[in-house]
Design a protein around this nucleic acid. Structure first.
Length: 325
DNA sequence: AACTATTTCAACCGCACGACA
DNA sequence: GTGTCGTGCGGTTGAAATAGT
């Protein structure tokens, strides 16, 4: 398609942003809001491409950007999420308040990718066929001594981040809410759902088990039990063959709403409370078709395959397992 | 102190996708 | 159905910072 570039590159500034440019962009967005990136530079009086403005705002100037080193908790979460999602940086970033996809991507390429590779040498292939790749200049010998990370800020960075306080790990916020982003590429991994009528039969078309368990789980009580399962080393998104469960939908949902209303059972099922069940919007918010009103059984129990349960439980195990993100 | 090697990360690039005319 | 726009994404680059000699 003969599409024009997002901007003429003639006469536009490139490279590092100056403090003055940052100020102009920030002031403009504060006054007019985000969006309309293509026209923004002209209106704001910036000699920049709209894309560049968007990137600068999203990755650096936004007021909610968290600065400072990635905490161990965050690091652990990144690793878990990368195991589940592969290089879906924006989706991963959506689970780390204040962190940007670019930051996480860089952190992975410079730190975690190598660390994870060395820990699980046989598990270098991510779901999408992307090897946990380091860019060419990041492929280095693991035995090489590492430089201790220290904050590096250009003049403009110092200026533009001065107001952003140092890092605050998610775990330091007991009531941390999800950050919802717009990354839906993950929906590509959706497994074809079984025919609807299959769902209503007590069959297991593709590792989906909605069978009404003979053992009806007791009503959920208070705090969820600790999760102890770990993600299998070879688990990938392809393992989630459990109907039209959409992990991205789940990740984009507000799980805090079910903090005290759901219970993982030992038989790979989840039982939700009457309150949660009654609030259909919350259930749908899970992006979890298995929990939609027409596929949840009378006892409000839905079963998932063992792989999903394992991964999900392990994912939620972040924060010590006694608390849903 | 001076120089080189290595690492970091902000910024760029190309592509994909949904919305819309 | 087709083309364009607006936006978002992941991969890559290269200048600057830092470590090593």
């Amino acid at each position: 398609m003969g599409r024009s570039p997002c901007c003429s590159k003639e006469g536009l500034n490139r490279g590092a942003w100056t403090a003055q440019e940052d100020r102009i962009l920030t002031n403009y967005i504060k006054a007019h809001g985000e969006g309309r990136w293509r026209n923004l530079p002209k209106k704001a009086g910036l000699q920049r491409c709209g894309k560049s403005c968007r990137l600068r705002w999203l990755n650096y100037l936004r007021p909610d950007i968290k600065r400072g080193n990635i905490s161990p908790d965050e690091e652990e979460l990144i690793i878990r999420l990368h195991k589940l999602l592969g290089n879906r940086w924006s989706l991963i970033a959506g689970r780390l308040p204040g962190r940007t996809d670019n930051e996480i991507k860089n952190y992975w390429n410079t730190n975690l990718g190598r660390k994870v590779q060395s820990n699980t040498p046989t598990n270098s292939q991510s779901r999408s066929g992307h090897v946990d790749q380091l860019s060419p200049n990041h492929q280095h010998d693991d035995d090489r001594p590492r430089k201790v990370k220290s904050p590096k800020h250009s003049e403009t960075s110092k200026m533009s981040t001065a107001d952003n306080s140092a890092s605050e790990s998610p775990s330091s916020k007991p009531d941390a809410r999800l950050v919802k982003n717009n990354a839906f590429k993950c929906s590509k991994v959706l497994i074809d759902p079984p025919p609807e009528q299959e769902l209503h039969r007590n069959e297991d078309p593709i590792n989906t088990d909605f069978a009404a368990s003979a053992a009806v789980a007791p009503a959920p009580t208070g705090v969820l039990p600790p999760f102890t399962a770990n993600i299998p080393a070879d688990l990938s998104m392809d393992d989630f063959e459990i109907g039209d469960i959409c992990l991205s939908g789940f990740l984009n949902s507000d799980t805090s709403s079910i903090a005290n209303q759901g219970q993982f059972n030992s038989n790979n099922s989840i039982t939700i409370s009457d309150d949660l069940f009654a609030d259909h919007s919350q259930v749908q918010g899970l992006g979890w078709a298995a929990l939609s009103s027409d596929s949840v059984h009378d006892n409000h129990q839905a079963n998932a395959g063992p792989n999903f349960h394992q991964a999900f439980a392990s994912f939620l195990d972040y924060n010590g397992g006694d608390q849903w993100l």
